[in-house]
Design a binder for these strands. Structure first.
Length: 498
RNA sequence: GGUCGGUUGGCCGAGUGGCUAGGCAGAGGUCUGCAAAACCUCGUACAGCGGUUCGAAUCCGCUACCGACCUCCA
């Protein structure tokens, strides 16, 4: 009985929350800008991909059939000095560009797997779509929104804006001001008619490695073009959701829209979703200025920014405790708090699995518990409010612990409600949030379980004999190797310490 | 400089006109052989200044500070 029974998303285009209505009922097309595979992903990228992973999972949870496309950029993304990122890296590492692409694609996948994200349905590469990109350049040229200059082709932003009046719509900048501003920089703009024009095909210099034949020159496609092409190819000329970090709004997404309209005559995307930046020490985490920590460093603890390593699930949980549209400041202290909270929930879920009741009818807590479960859906329906949804899981855990410890009678909850709670808690924690139980605490293989059972039994015997020296030796010894014993009413359980 | 966003208790972080967010840390208590875990109780926070309102952390204006984009980044 949620208050909100419809999914509402914040659309960057309108800057408002809108009811989500896919163009084909029951089906969702979602495109997310993936990484340029020329170096290891950093944590800010990971946050964005985790955010869209949650969105993907939640859409599926709601019953939508989702086609999730996330590209890999392997050509055309240039550095300030005009060098292709992949090519430059290939030169530095003295291997083929495509080896670079493969190496960092593998690394990207490995990293995301650590965080238990689902693979997209299609992961297209820019170099795999050269023909389509050339075709789109031709379309844009044919429609008069591009011009050729010395073998390169540039998108004509001035003409585009005169025609459609919406260049700058997404990023919220007034195009006249943008034009006026950049006019002073004309000296740097050599071939372009106007500074805000951008290349959709670039002629390659002789020494350039990654280049292809085209009607205009031996060259390579512009950075923004691939996303227009691949989203159109796999999701159609108009589709539902386009996502990415908000640092891509301008120029990348703005230009993407312009290209699609320039080629197809219509705006490609109904809902633009943008994630906010991950900060560290109050500043944007960024590859280019060194204020960064890699996923590996964060997990291993091998970084001056953290006092210890953190389990990937803890890092993910930390991220989910803020909203995807808010900045999130990564600090060691905040991670430690998240770690404790995360284990509280995993322990709660494990305790929940063991709860039983013989209350066949309705229990006195049923209404409150069912209400909390409904609120989780409301929260997620409200633009994927994971922090709020997680607060409900903590509330539920409080009930679970009371039931577990006997502070509440077992039959305070009815059979049906208990089953509902088990189903829903798992559905959100494991399936929607993609968290897992077994990474941090208390579950080993059969041998470990057997050994622990034996050790706990020996300690229990010592305690019965009031042999505190032995029982404390066992407890402290286990503590030293990172295992915590918890004595409860129903006996002793153990878990790995956080 | 232009554009946009933010400033919430010791820390992180939701909320956006009247109803306890939540987590972590801290204090006291229950339980325990002692601890831990769990449970109970405890914080009267919303940058500053004005304004609108019966009522504002929440709306409006100004100021300060922070950040992002404008140029490669998710």
């Amino acid at each position: 009985m949620g208050l909100i029974d419809q999914l509402v998303v914040f659309n960057s285009l309108s800057r408002k929350k809108e009811v989500f209505e896919p163009q084909i009922p029951g089906q969702v097309g979602m495109y997310v800008c993936g990484p340029t595979v020329y170096s290891d992903v950093h944590l800010g990228n990971v946050r964005t991909f985790i955010s869209f992973d949650i969105i993907y999972r939640y859409l599926q949870h709601l019953g939508y059939k989702v086609r999730y496309v996330r590209n890999l950029t392997d050509v055309g993304h240039l550095l300030d000095d005009g060098q292709d990122r992949v090519s430059k890296r290939a030169r530095l590492e003295q291997i083929e560009p495509m080896e670079i692409v493969q190496k960092y694609t593998n690394s990207f996948h490995d990293t995301l797997r650590l965080f238990n994200t689902l693979s997209p349905n299609i992961e297209p590469r820019a170099t795999g779509h050269l023909i389509e990109q050339i075709e789109m350049v031709q379309e844009i040229l044919a429609n008069g929104f591009a011009y050729e200059r010395n073998g390169s082709v540039y998108f004509d932003t001035v003409k585009f804006h005169e025609t459609f009046k919406n260049y700058g719509e997404l990023s919220g900048r007034k195009i006249e001001e943008l034009f006026a501003e950049t006019r002073e920089d004309l000296k740097n703009q050599d071939e372009k008619n106007h500074p805000s024009d951008f290349a959709i095909w670039m002629k390659a210099a002789d020494e350039h490695i990654m280049k292809w034949n085209s009607p205009w020159s031996v060259g390579f496609p512009g950075w923004h073009l691939e996303c227009s092409v691949m989203s159109t190819k796999y999701l159609g000329e108009t589709f539902d959701i386009h996502g990415g970090g908000n640092d891509l709004k301008f120029p990348h997404h703005e230009n993407e829209i312009a290209q699609n309209i320039g080629a197809k005559g219509k705006a490609p995307v109904k809902y633009w979703l943008h994630t906010n930046m991950l900060l560290m020490n109050g500043k944007k985490m960024s590859k280019s200025d060194g204020n960064t920590i890699s996923p590996e460093e964060l997990i291993s603890g091998n970084s001056p920014h953290v006092t210890k390593g953190y389990d990937p699930m803890v890092v993910k949980f930390f991220m989910l405790q803020s909203h995807y549209r808010s900045t999130l400041d990564l600090t060691d202290e905040a991670l430690q708090a998240a770690e404790k909270g995360y284990y509280k929930l995993t322990e709660g879920l494990k305790a929940l699995e063991k709860l039983t009741t013989d209350q066949a009818g309705e229990g006195q807590l049923d209404q409150e518990i069912n209400g909390l479960l409904d609120l989780i859906t409301d929260d997620m329906n409200d633009d994927f409010n994971t922090p709020k949804a997680i607060s409900r899981l903590f509330d539920l855990t409080n009930y679970i612990n009371k039931l577990k410890d006997g502070h509440l009678a077992a039959n305070a909850v009815g059979t049906e409600c208990l089953e509902h709670m088990k189903r829903a808690f798992k559905a959100f924690f494991l399936d929607v949030f993609g968290l897992s139980l077994d990474s941090g605490a208390g579950q080993g293989d059969d041998i470990v379980e057997g050994l622990m059972g034996l050790v706990i039994a020996i300690r229990q015997k010592a305690r019965e004999n009031k042999n505190w020296e032995t029982s404390d030796q066992i407890r402290d010894g286990l503590d030293n190797i990172g295992i915590q014993l918890k004595d409860g009413k129903e006996g002793t359980v153990w878990s790995k310490k956080s």
